[in-house]
């Protein structure tokens, strides 16, 4: 696990020595309070081009506040938020594609009308700010007319886009959720944003649709954009290059999934009657999870597990296995809660 520390100003771009471009997102020592409540506490976060960063945390951990700070919907109390090297502004917003959890689509407009609207929103902005816009390479393409952008949204190479095209005159409220999600993606991607901000991007869709949405995210990122994704689910966390874990406003861990798991382990318990083993371990107050017919005690030490099983007179085989990311996450977040 790599704890976030002081980073050079171009921290996220450090891996690209040839390019002096600043990271897409640079959050440095940002604190944001609401009254006495510290929603975000000295948080650091970097998203560079070509990477998918996952933001995880329990509810109330500060994820939403951090996202709103990055989107420019809130201002930090302390610290600095930089998007593409500058404070969030209208200019940074035109380089941003945002898919909120609620999708942010107009349900009483058709598919085409939604795409036209977001294309217009970004195209108009491109014209009115062209004079003062920096020579951003990718966003120059956002100058395209609305019609172009709409055509691009449909014209992608993805085979699934045919479904959207077939539904182009339907009202969004009449579409199934999977298609709505795809439309939200198409609307957010049509102006070729440099940064994607996705809040639980694939909730409620089936596994194939989820895989296809992630194909789209990866394709966008490999085209040079960066993505910041919040999620509660491991199916999504494992898609990210790097994860940032928050608890109680503080970034408690960041790095690759493998690095965050590190050497964490779990005790796996295999009993002839898992119910009996469960009851014994439950009574001992150990952290406990069921996995099929196996039981797992994340972070638990063997001795306590053995003792608990002996107390319950349960015969079981136990072995030490690497912890899952979810187990590591829960252990970290719970430890943080109990310390404070």
């Amino acid at each position: 696990m790599t704890q976030s520390g002081e980073m050079p100003a171009n921290g996220g771009g450090a891996s690209r020595p040839a390019s002096p471009a600043p990271p897409l997102v640079a959050v440095r020592a940002v604190t944001r309070r609401f009254g006495d409540f510290v929603a975000v506490d000295a948080a650091d976060l970097t998203v560079g081009p070509g990477e998918v960063v996952g933001l995880l945390g329990a509810n109330g951990a500060g994820k939403t506040t951090l996202i709103r700070l990055i989107l420019g919907l809130l201002r930090p109390g302390n610290g600095r938020v930089r998007l593409f090297g500058e404070p969030p502004s209208r200019r940074t917003r035109r380089r941003l594609g945002y898919v909120p959890q609620g999708l942010g689509l107009w349900e009483d407009l058709t598919v085409t009308e939604n795409l036209e609207f977001s294309a217009d929103a970004f195209a108009v902005a491109a014209h009115s700010t062209r004079a003062d816009a920096p020579a951003a390479t990718r966003s120059a393409r956002a100058d395209a007319s609305a019609a172009d952008a709409t055509a691009r949204a449909y014209g992608g190479a993805e085979p699934l886009d045919a479904d959207l095209r077939a539904a182009r005159d339907q009202l969004v409220r009449d579409l199934p959720l999977g298609l709505r999600r795809r439309l939200a993606f198409a609307a957010a991607l049509a102006h070729h944003p440099d940064l994607l901000v996705l809040d639980e991007p694939t909730s409620g869709v089936d596994p194939l649709a989820r895989a296809r949405l992630w194909d789209t995210i990866h394709a966008t990122v490999e085209d040079g954009a960066g993505a910041l994704v919040t999620t509660h689910y491991m199916d999504e966390a494992e898609q990210c290059d790097r994860l940032v874990v928050m608890a109680q406003g503080v970034v408690i861990a960041q790095g690759t999934m493998r690095a965050i798991i590190g050497a964490a382990t779990a005790v796996e318990v295999e009993a002839d009657h898992w119910e009996a083993a469960f009851a014994a371990l439950d009574a001992a107050g150990l952290p406990l999870a069921l996995a099929g017919r196996l039981l797992r005690v994340p972070g638990g030490d063997q001795a306590r597990v053995r003792a608990a099983l002996a107390t319950g007179a349960v015969a079981a085989r136990i072995r030490i296995v690497p912890a899952t990311f979810e187990e590591t996450f829960v252990t970290l977040a719970t430890a943080r809660q109990e310390n404070s």
């Binding site: 689910y233 952290p287 809660q337």
Partner: peptide
């Protein structure tokens, strides 16, 4: 539900099953 509460919820559900209840659980994940 976040992963911390979800772990608790899962433990409760597993407890119900361990006690003999039949559990049907719908999810998209």
């Amino acid at each position: 539900v976040d992963p911390v509460s979800r772990a608790e919820l899962w433990r409760l559900i597993a407890g119900a099953a361990a006690a003999g209840t039949g559990v049907l659980f719908a999810t998209s994940y």
